[in-house]
Amino acid sequence: MKKLNSIIFILFISLTAFAQYDYDTSDKYPFGRPNPEAPEQIKDYEAMIGECNCKSSTRKQDGTWNEEIDLIWRWKYILNGMSVQDETLKADGGHSGSIRQFVADSSRWYVHWFSSKTPSTKFPVWEGNKKDDKIVLYKEQKAPNGTDGFFRLTFYDMSETGYKWIGEWVDKTESVVFPTWKINCIRQNQ
């Protein structure tokens, strides 16, 4: 009887241990799944989960746009479906990624960004929310002339076929808007 109880206990512990990863990436769910215990906002990024082929372009100093660079933008649920991670794999070798966590106490997303070209001991952080059909994130940043403002990131036109992203410097009132980076993504077959 003691041996049977030990076997049952070990099976219970084993099943419990595996259950804690039910929403992580797996063969069946290569990009994970949202955990039902996560804040409902975990689904804000639902349209991006998976992999897209994208075209990225940044603005030159003279105001014109650089040639587009190909990139793969890959998204998945992490931390057993409680957060979102993305990574970009760029044809020019400049790879980057983010960890995205929704903090219920502040009702905001916090996005911690990192890059292979600019390693850092302290990651820059954007914060924001989904507004209507867009995700809008901000980080304080001065303009080259010293004017206070933000670097605003916006995901829009999100659908099953892809999405668009734009990075813009905006003043504190958001009446001055200067786009500096844009990315257009088309979803790959899953």
Rank of each mutant, 00 (worst) to 15 (best):
P36S: 02
D24H: 09
A91E: 14
Y138A: 09
Q20S: 15
S120T: 13
Q41I: 02
R100I: 12
E67N: 14
K122C: 10
K76I: 01
P39R: 02
T118E: 14
A17F: 12
I69K: 08
D22N: 15
F123T: 13
C52E: 09
E51P: 04
D86T: 03
Q190M: 14
E68W: 08
M48Y: 03
K131S: 11
Y29G: 01
D22L: 15
F31K: 02
N189Y: 08
F178T: 15
S175T: 15
Y163E: 01
S106M: 11
T118S: 15
D132M: 09
K90R: 15
S96P: 07
E51C: 10
P179W: 03
K122E: 13
N80G: 03
G32H: 01
S57C: 08
D148C: 09
V177W: 00
A91W: 10
K134S: 10
A19P: 05
R108F: 10
Q101C: 13
N5K: 15
K134E: 12
S175L: 11
D171S: 05
L137D: 04
E127F: 14
G63W: 05
Y163V: 01
T25F: 06
G128C: 03
L79T: 10
E68L: 13
F18V: 15
M82Q: 00
T121N: 15
S14V: 14
S14A: 13
P36R: 03
I99N: 10
F102H: 06
I42T: 01
E51R: 11
D24C: 10
I13D: 05
A19D: 05
I166W: 00
R152A: 05
D86C: 05
F155V: 08
F150R: 01
M158D: 02
I49P: 03
V170R: 04
N53T: 11
K43A: 10
P39V: 00
F9P: 05
Q141C: 09
I166K: 06
K43G: 05
Q188K: 15
I49A: 00
K28C: 04
Y163L: 07
S159G: 02
L137Q: 02
S96D: 09
E160T: 14
G167H: 03
I42N: 02
H95Y: 08
E67M: 12
G81R: 03
P36W: 02
N66P: 02
I7S: 06
R100K: 12
D62W: 07
K131F: 10
I13T: 12
V125A: 06
Q41Y: 01
Q61S: 14
Y77V: 04
D86I: 08
T173V: 11
G50A: 08
